[in-house]
Write a protein that binds this DNA or RNA. Structure first.
Lengths: 293, 293
DNA sequence: ACGTTTGATAGGGAGTAGTTATCAGTACCC
DNA sequence: GGGTACTGATAACTACTCCCTATCAAACGT
């Protein structure tokens, strides 16, 4: 309208009829309480107020276009921010792979990694602070969906020179005769190891608990006892010179399942499923068993 | 909605019902093709896309507020731009008064003065380039309204020492015996003076025409003839030392009517009428007869 | 297991907004 | 000067949208 200064032409451009536009402009003037256009049967002019309103209207429309563009781009999956929560006993060993994956295949994904314990992650997921979690399954809370990614065995870690060092077929019952060191309360790995111990009637060694896996292995290296580590941690934590040795359990070894957790209501389920599959393919070099479905 | 994360609360704030808001959000999502909020029967969360859309929506609303504010301020008369066209034979003598008036009483008025000849002003008015004109009435074109402001007599200007110098009752017929100098074509003052001359059968002196009033009086001072000047110009153009003298015509003297001209469709008629009245009061010190209505 | 609270859905009614047809005024052209 | 064509406004009618009340189904907390 402001461009054409002609009701019929402008109406045609907008795809409506001249009376409709006419009354629309009249309604706008009524609403604003200001005359916007000067009408003659021969000429249409914008009043100064009309000029300014038209300028502002263009700004409004621009902002609307931006909004639509934003929505348009948001419709593409694997773009925009993704807040991923990862438990501390998984993060150090899987993140390198995951970050490389995102960098190579999901360039437009803004990945924010939050390393917290399971309960905190689940709270964050429910509150909307986090979008996706990578932790040990099952999460055991309602309202979430789980996508398994891989299983990893637990491995026995002992001090260098320990009788079991390098042993490939340790029966779980052997744990009863050992001092088992565990992580602090709150780490799910602690509970998982405890489960294994309880299963065979083994007990935690005294009150010594570690705040992190590196600390834990230091305790083991110091000869205070043995511990259970997930396979993915072995390569990093028991490197040569660490004064540690590993021992495998008899098949089937105890294991934990690691997977993605998302809100059941998320609407990005398909996207996350695909992400899970990409992750499975990326961790082929880790000592884990990929799990689908 | 983005603020409350709760359909019922948000609906209450907006002043509508929960189903209405629910379907509105659904419709928006449909239109944008993107999920904006995650709904649980227990919790409402914005998706990343929803966050961004909400941010953009706020910008849209801000722009709309600006628009409304703009209209609001535009509703106040005597604010914003006013493009005033003035003829050259009026501008130098009335503008000082007018500008002082605007500066003192209409501080928020952005006055732009355009000094052009009548036909150009009328074109500009019709085209919307100008909002208001100050010129000699009648304009003689359709579609415009006229507001008379004042009448000013024509005064005879002669060289110093001329037989009529200082004479207070010169009959118009006297013009027949004089060399009358006039402005260039296009100046309405030329036509007005010509009318006076024709009335009594007087003729223009040769081909000598001036482009401006100052030039014209220089010609008179140089002894090339006499001319007719509007009263408002006398004080400025025939100051002491200008080697000019004036003579008044017998009552009733020839005169011209000066007034405002606006588009009949303008919608600012009331504003301009008030401006005219202010102008009338401001020019009390000029040698004119104020005219109302 | 039950009650409360949440968002979604169904159905009906009112108001808006669009359509076509027509009017009235103006400029242009012969 | 008169006719013509084109302008925006108006009228009457229609259709649709939007909103409301009432109700439902699911999920959390007790």
């Amino acid at each position: 309208m402001a461009d054409h200064l002609h009701f019929r032409d402008a109406a045609a451009v907008v795809g409506t009829s001249q009376p409709a536009l006419s009354s629309a402009v009249a309604a706008l003037e009524e609403a604003l309480g200001t005359q916007l256009v000067e009408r003659t049967t021969r000429r249409v002019l914008l009043t100064p107020a009309g000029e300014r309103v038209a300028r502002h209207a263009r700004r409004v429309l621009d902002a609307l276009d931006d909004l639509v563009d934003e929505a348009e781009s948001a419709r593409r999956p694997f773009t925009g921010p993704l807040h991923l929560g990862v438990i501390p006993t998984v993060a150090p060993y899987v993140l390198p792979t995951l970050l490389r994956l995102v960098r190579d295949e999901y360039r437009e994904l803004d990945l924010y990694v939050h390393e917290e314990q399971t309960h905190s992650l689940l709270d964050g997921l429910a509150a909307g602070r986090l979008d996706l979690l990578l932790l040990a399954l099952p999460a055991g809370v309602p309202g979430v969906d789980e996508i398994p990614v891989y299983d990893e065995d637990f491995t026995l870690v002992v001090p260098e020179g320990h009788p079991l060092a390098g042993c490939q077929g340790v029966p779980r019952a052997q744990l009863r005769d050992m001092d088992i060191l565990l992580l602090d309360e709150g780490h799910c790995l602690r509970d998982q190891a405890l489960d294994v111990c309880r299963e065979v009637g083994a007990a935690e060694a005294g009150a010594t608990r570690a705040a992190s896996l590196p600390t834990l292995v230091q305790l083991v290296a110091g000869g205070l006892g043995a511990t259970l580590l997930p396979e993915t941690a072995i390569g990093v934590e028991t490197r040569p010179g660490s004064r540690l040795a590993v021992a495998r359990f008899t098949d089937p070894a105890p294991y934990r399942r690691i997977g993605l957790v998302l809100r059941a209501s998320t609407g990005r389920a398909a996207e996350f499923s695909q992400l899970a599959e990409s992750l499975r393919q990326s961790i082929a070099d880790l000592p884990v068993r990929v799990v689908r479905g």
